[in-house]
Design a protein around this nucleic acid. Structure first.
Length: 443
RNA sequence: GCGAGCGUAGCUCAGCGGUAGAGCGUCACGUUGCCAACGUGAAUGUCGUGGGUUCAAUUCCCAUCGCUCGCUCCA
C-alpha cells in the first residue's frame, strides 16, 4: 500500500478523476481555463457528501451553532474593513535584468534587486487577489464589487441578525459552506490551489476570557474529525502552529495533509480576537457589541474560527483512498491482476451500494432492489459486462458494497453482499438489506 | 509572474513533411454465470488553438492557451 504513494500518484489520480467522472478541467473544449475545475457525476456526489458530513458534524449535531448562506457578492466596504482590499495584494516589483519578482515590503533596499543587485526594476505594482466585477449595467469605479475571498466575512457582518433571530447568547457559532474566489498568481497541484473554490467555515463567538479554551476545544474537535470521521492516518496529518501571525490573529494553526506533492493545508483554526468585529463596527458605524445580561456589560465578541477547504478535503480523500492491490483474474495466461480501489469511508463514497444482476436475464427484479435502496443510500445499478468487470468498476470509484442478484435469489429471497476491501461475500435477506446497510454505513 | 518540459481517441502512449495507429476503456451481439473471462463487430480524433514557412504541416518555426516540475507566492 505504501509504495503506491509515489510521485506518479497525482498523475494516476488526475487521470482516474477524468476517466471516471470525478473532476474535469473547466471549459475543456475551449482549451481550459487556468485554476478552475468542474466536478463530474461521482465528484459531485463525493463533494456533497463531504459538505453534508461537515454540516452534520458542525451544525446539526450541536445546539450552539447556526447555519448561514450568504451572497458571494457583498458590499465592497466589507473588503475594505476586512483588510483584503489593502493588504490582500502586495506591492511587487520585477527585475528587468534577472526577471525575478520581489515583494517590495520584503526588500532591504527597495531600489536594488535582492537577487542580482541590479537597479533596473519596474515601478512597484499592486497585485490584488480579489476578483472584481460590476454591479448594475454601468461598469465604472462607483459600481465596482468583489467576489468574496473568504466565506467568513459575511458571517461577521450578519452576526447580529443571526444572534437576534436565533435568540442566541454567547458563546455560539455561525457556520457557512460556499464558494470563494481568489486571483491566485499561480494555481497549482490540481484542485489544491484554484481560483474558485469552496470553503466550510465556522465562526465561534465567545467571551475573551474563555477564548483560548474554545480555541483548544475547536482545535481538538477538528483534529478528531480528520482522524475519526474522515479516517486519515496519524502519518498523513500534521498540526502546524503559526509562529508569524496574520494581522488579525492571536493564535493560529494549520491542519495539514501529506499530499503526494508535499504537506498542504486542509484547515486553519484561528483565534481572530475582536479584529473583524471591531473593524466592521468601525467601517459600518453600527454598534456590533454584545450585551452580557448576567454581568451587565457590553463587550465585543471574540472569534475563534475553523476554516476548511472543501476541494482540498476532496483531494486529500482521493489521495488517502487510492490503492492498488492484486486480485485473482481469469484473463488468459494470468493468475493475478492489479486492482485499483478507492478506499473511501463508506459514509462519503459517491456510490454506497451497487446492485448487480449476475445475468442480464435478472435485470428486472434486481433493478427493483436498486430502486428501493436508492431511497436511503447512494445506489447504482449496472448490468453491462461480466460480474468481475462490474466489481472492478465499483472498486475504482470506491463503492464499499456490491449487491449481487443471482439465480438463487428468486428462491431464497436473499442476495450476496460483496465487500470492497476484503472482497468477501455475505448472504443477506432482501428484507434485511436496508437495516444491514444502515448499520454498515453508520447512517 | 520567471525558467524548463509536455500537449495525438475517454485513459496511457507510439508515429510521421504527403491529412493517423496500438493497448486499455466504452457500446452491441453471442457465449459464460461471483471477481477487469472469451469471440465477433461498432463508435470516437478538425493530432490543444491561431498564424507562418512549404506544392503539401499532426510533423518545421512563431505566438497563444492548458498541464507538470523548479523558483516565487499562499492574508
Amino acid at each position: 500500500m505504501e509504495n503506491t504513494k509515489s510521485p506518479e500518484l497525482m498523475e494516476k489520480i488526475v487521470s482516474l478523476c477524468k476517466r471516471r467522472g470525478f473532476i474535469f478541467q473547466s471549459s475543456e473544449i475551449y482549451g481550459g481555463i487556468n485554476g478552475f475545475w468542474d466536478y463530474g457525476p461521482y465528484g459531485t456526489a463525493l463533494k456533497r457528501a463531504v459538505e453534508k458530513c461537515w454540516w452534520n458534524e458542525m451544525v446539526e449535531k450541536r445546539d450552539n451553532v447556526d447555519g448561514l448562506d450568504s451572497t458571494v457578492i457583498c458590499h465592497p466596504k466589507i473588503w475594505k474593513a476586512s483588510g483584503h482590499l489593502d493588504k490582500f495584494g502586495d506591492l511587487m516589483t520585477d527585475c528587468r535584468d534577472c526577471k525575478a519578482r520581489h515583494r517590495v515590503d520584503q526588500m532591504e533596499d527597495q531600489s536594488k534587486c535582492p537577487a542580482c543587485g541590479s537597479n533596473n526594476l519596474t515601478a512597484p505594482r499592486e497585485f490584488n487577489l480579489m476578483m472584481k466585477t460590476y454591479v448594475g449595467p454601468v461598469s465604472d469605479e462607483e459600481h465596482t464589487a468583489y467576489l468574496r475571498a473568504e466565506t467568513c466575512q459575511p458571517i461577521f457582518v450578519d452576526f447580529n441578525l443571526v444572534r437576534v433571530a436565533a435568540r442566541r447568547k454567547l458563546p455560539f457559532g455561525i457556520a457557512q459552506i460556499g464558494k470563494a474566489f481568489r486571483n491566485e498568481i499561480n494555481p497549482r497541484n490540481f484542485i489544491f490551489r484554484s481560483r474558485e473554490f469552496s470553503q466550510m467555515e465556522m465562526e465561534f463567538f465567545c467571551y475573551e476570557e474563555d477564548s483560548m479554551n474554545w480555541y483548544e476545544y475547536w482545535k481538538n474537535e477538528r483534529i478528531r474529525y480528520y482522524r475519526d470521521v474522515l479516517g486519515f492516518k496519524e502519518d498523513e496529518l500534521k498540526i502546524h502552529g503559526h509562529e508569524a501571525l496574520a494581522h488579525y490573529a492571536k493564535a493560529a494553526l494549520d491542519i495539514e495533509f501529506k499530499f503526494p506533492f508535499g504537506w498542504g493545508e486542509l484547515e486553519g483554526v484561528h483565534h481572530r480576537g475582536t479584529w473583524d468585529m471591531s473593524r466592521h463596527q468601525e467601517f459600518s458605524g453600527e454598534n456590533l457589541e454584545y450585551f452580557d445580561q448576567e454581568k451587565n456589560r457590553r463587550i465585543m465578541p471574540t472569534v475563534v474560527e475553523t476554516s476548511v477547504g472543501v476541494d482540498r478535503t476532496v483531494l486529500a480523500l482521493l489521495c488517502h483512498a487510492y490503492d492498488e492491490d492484486t486480485a485473482a483474474t481469469k484473463k488468459e495466461g494470468m493468475e493475478e491482476d492489479v486492482r485499483i480501489v478507492l478506499r473511501f469511508p463508506a459514509k462519503l463514497a459517491p456510490v454506497q451500494v451497487a446492485v448487480l444482476p449476475l445475468s442480464n436475464k435478472l435485470s428486472e427484479p434486481a433493478n427493483k432492489i436498486s430502486a428501493a435502496l436508492k431511497k436511503y443510500f447512494r445506489a447504482e445499478f449496472d448490468v453491462t459486462g461480466s460480474i468481475g468487470k462490474r466489481y472492478r468498476r465499483q472498486d475504482e470509484i470506491g463503492t464499499p458494497y456490491c449487491v449481487t442478484y443471482d439465480f438463487q435469489t428468486a428462491e431464497d429471497q436473499a442476495v450476496t453482499v460483496r465487500d470492497r476491501d476484503t472482497m468477501a461475500q455475505d448472504r443477506v435477506a432482501i428484507d434485511k438489506l436496508k437495516q444491514y446497510f444502515q448499520d454498515k454505513l453508520d447512517m
